[in-house]
Amino acid sequence: MEKLSFRHTTQKALPGAKASAITGVVASGNLEVLLERNLAPDTCAFEIDTAVNGYAEVWAAVVADFVARRQPGGLTITINDGGARPDTVSLRLAQGARLMEMP
């Protein structure tokens, strides 16, 4: 297991008023993403528990790409990862952001 933390400054807050949402399942090649709206609107924090060691740089790139695309200001995003590929991680993050935006 490896623990990773990232903190990004965003240009804006993620739209919507939903307090929290969850998507995905912890399974082989899959992950669960818990999103909570509890930070300043220009801040996004990530706490990641991953079963696969040694991929911190890949995680940093996937997270930075998500932040650049979605501007998820205000969110704490906590991840339990069962060894998902980067494309699956991107998909789950996008699903989670969409859930937080939905009325």
């Binding site: 297991m1 912890v26 528990d49 991953t50 079963a51 906590t78 339990n80 990862d81 069962g82």
Partner: peptide, 9 residues
């Protein structure tokens, strides 16, 4: 965590 396994919320 004792077994170095991922947890679910």
């Amino acid at each position: 965590p004792l077994f170095d396994l991922p947890r679910a919320f």
